[in-house]
Design a protein around this nucleic acid. Structure first.
Lengths: 198, 198, 198, 198
DNA sequence: CATGAATGAGCCTTCATTCAT
DNA sequence: TATGAATGAAGGCTCATTCAT
């Protein structure tokens, strides 16, 4: 029976805390999330949190970093392989579906953005993550146009922001009756529309 | 020198409080907004607030109601007049520009929606306002298709939600460097695209 | 039955809080004193404290100011009247006795000084009070030498500091078995010694 | 290459911890000193502390014991040799200068005394150290009077307490602009004064 | 109606201490 | 012996809300 090394144990604790924090931030917002709730839901006591993170914002950044890199790495890996139009569209559909299906992740991103709007210092750090995401989306869109054999439209530079805004806006509706039951379909509608438009 | 009637004086106080509350909610969120800041910024003291509203949520609802009805009434008035395609598009462009230009209003709506996600009781009340807005957007879109002489697409019912999501998503970027400098243009792009697509 | 005016009521609350704070600071030190204990001992709840003071340091300053001015004013009043040597010595003896008899006051001063040593911002404010006290002591000593018909020694400027150090040092012993039972007598011994020396 | 015996290694660790603790206690007080800071500044981790001391108070006692015995032993050694008046005065001057020059040591003693005032159990242990010091001072004063050929005054028993109070009071000013720049000189003035007085 | 003093729940954070490694 | 992860009590401070004036 091998016991966990110190480092592994720490990693596991942090992963649990991150998971709990993501959920708590998503549900109650950065300000509304209580560290006690986070640690409790992760199965630890208050002190464990501060043994691993310097502050509430510290774990916000850690969650952002962990999930962002996970997400982006996946997109990059996919983009590294030459795929045809259908595959790309299918992949994006899957990504949207997963993203919107995990209500917490979408709401977490919104809360991070809100915190950035209210906090200059955090905004600077947040910007970095945001840029990475936008760049990924841009690359994906570029692949899309290229495989479709369609010229990129004049406002191509803004399309990534537009698409992200759309996804973010839809995340806010997830879980509501007011939301779309088939949001990924609608996003695909949007993508196909802009492709044909050109 | 006519004195203000008691009712008028009350409604002036409330209007000031609403304006201050809208701003504070937009900037700091429902949870993060302090009643003291609201009253202070409105030029009153704590007591005035509770003389006019039962609770923090109470004024949230009042602001929502006041601004929502203002906004919707305007759209309805415009829609009552038969206009041509260009005029409608121009009007929508102006609406978006105004909406996104007043960062506070966009953020306020988001915060209201967030509060609804976190609070069952409020959600029920919020739903009503949301439905009215969506209905208005749907009517406007309907007018658009009709004047364009284009048949409404099969997913027409979802387009209003999609459009609102886009506007909400863009609001979140307002004020950021990451945002679009010409968000209204991009929204028009979106509208024209879905029109031509059909 | 006249009720208290707002202002009076506030004054009374603050006086109670000051009294409690003086005691708590004296007993447990600035860092060790708990605001909860202060308010409780003053007969209020936590919130009342922050309705009257901005922070723990804020009330430290207020106590310092209140007691300092009380003390100094008394010395100044006494010094305004031309007295003979015996009366002055007797007055100083009484002052010392009162000061050392109220263990809290002496310890409070020490705690204020300790806090000043650890806190730059507070140190600046504290300096002002300290200077006033030293100036008072200097005036009293000056009167002493003058009435005694004795020339002030070359190190007269330092005597006030020396005397204050002695009082402070003795305060630290008050309440201990190790302390002097007749500290005021010893202080008089010190005074007479430096007088005769010259 | 001789390895350190377990005991030597232990005592080196403890000496480092004591040095760090003395400084931390002096600067931030017993309550304000953080064990983490002590161990970190000594180059160890938390665990090393508790491997060597049972509690924070435990190291306070150890520091007190170590430094006290060092100080007292020195005085005793000096007193063992018959010296003339000038030499004794010079020695005392040097002692004062060293004591006041090492701000930490003076402040540490004050903090120990404060802790004793707040803690019955510790007070009992502290008393022992205090008595030793007072006894040393008394012996030194006795030597002084004896070498000066002057009879001890009636309050001789209290002079040690008086002198210690003076030194302690002056320590509190060390580092302040308010303090005496030539405190040892002033202490000598005091000593000479009481000698001549008699 | 409006004022502002007081309440008290709740939250972030620190830190002495324990204990498995 | 030393490490550092985890515990949990405690404390400063904020803020929605109540209520006497």
């Amino acid at each position: 029976m091998t016991r966990l090394s110190r480092e592994d144990s720490r990693s596991i604790t942090q992963e649990k805390l991150r998971t709990a924090a993501l959920q708590e931030f998503a549900r109650w917002g950065f300000g509304g999330a209580a560290i006690d709730k986070i640690t409790e839901s992760a199965g630890f006591s208050r002190g464990a949190f501060y043994a691993n993170y310097k502050s509430k914002e510290d774990i916000l950044i850690d969650v952002l970093k962990a999930y962002n890199s996970r997400e982006i790495q996946e997109w990059r890996q996919f983009l590294a392989m030459p795929e045809d139009l259908e595959t790309i569209l299918e992949y994006m559909r899957g990504s949207f579906a997963r993203y919107l299906g995990q209500a917490d992740w979408g709401m977490f991103v919104i809360e991070a953005q809100l915190h950035a709007k209210r906090n200059r210092d955090f905004a600077a750090k947040y910007r970095g993550y945001l840029n990475e995401v936008n760049e990924s989306v841009r690359l994906m869109l570029s692949a899309l146009y290229s495989r479709a054999g369609v010229a990129e439209p004049p406002n191509f530079g803004e399309l990534a922001v537009l698409l992200r805004a759309l996804v973010v806006g839809l995340s806010l509706d997830v879980g509501d009756d007011s939301g779309l039951s088939n949001a990924p379909d609608q996003l695909m509608y949007f993508l196909k529309t802009i492709l044909h438009q050109a």
